[in-house]
Amino acid sequence: MSTDKISTMREAIKKFVHNNELVFLGGFGNGIAFSAAHEIIRQDLKSLTVCKCGGGILFDQLIGAGVVDQIITSHCWNPHGPQPAWNLKRAMEEGIPNNLIYNEQSLFMINMSFYAGYMGVPFMPIRSIVGTDIFDNPKEVGLKAAKVECPFTGEEICVVPAINPDVGIIQVQRADIEGNAQMWGLIGDTKFGINACKRIIVAAEEIVDKAVIMESPERTIVSSNKVDAVVHEPWGGHPGYMQGYYYTDLEYRFNYAKETKEIRDWNKWLEKWITGVNDRQEYLNILGEDKLRKLKAKNLIQGAVNYGY
């Protein structure tokens, strides 16, 4: 059996992401899976539920394109300014382009739900959401949290259920062709979220030899036994950043708010950056070489250690 899982983003999404599924997208600032989300939009998938600790403008785009029915997240806004996520607002306030369920989470709650999924247990206890309206809203998504008695101390504690997405996609610094994926810098919810998933697509800035992975194996956040597809996708996290590769495109993200405030402007934006291009390379062509040069990270190589034994 071949261990080479290299694929294009188009093939990987087509094969592993289906209508009506629960999808995890990785990245908290570092390595946000923008390229994958754009391909999901191009393939016009329907009725997805997407989950991620902070939705940001990534979820805003999925909402505006009409591919999601439900978001499971703790926060969805454009952090630059900060300014509203206009597609989220349109969906929640006016049902445009469709009625959206915002499954309200707190940051700890969703992280612990991923952690329960990661650990293969049905729930995890947390101390933070009792007495808030996050605890049981929206009602239509059913039981989101519960209070149980600790069998050891008798103390009452809140528990949140495991989340095990059907499929997850992450954008990482590097991976080998088998799918051993390494990420460094800020991880956020990415490691536990992706390992809770049933199917996994890894998109990487660079494809490296397995020997490179084995030089610092503690950087691996998901290993090959779980991974279904590996996509070589440089700049796949733009307009977010990838530590050691490129910085956040602050200008682009800031302007996004004004360019999507009105629905007709959003439609133009969608066509220009997502539906009007075939793949990431064409997207990068629009962005232009000057911009990429400006965003490219400077080298800061540090932290070699002795693994001797």
Partner: peptide, 21 residues
Amino acid sequence: PYKKPIYRLPGGGGATEIAGL
């Protein structure tokens, strides 16, 4: 009203646990 918001806001993020703990 939660079901028919006049103005939808971002959601709490980590503020829920920061305020709690």
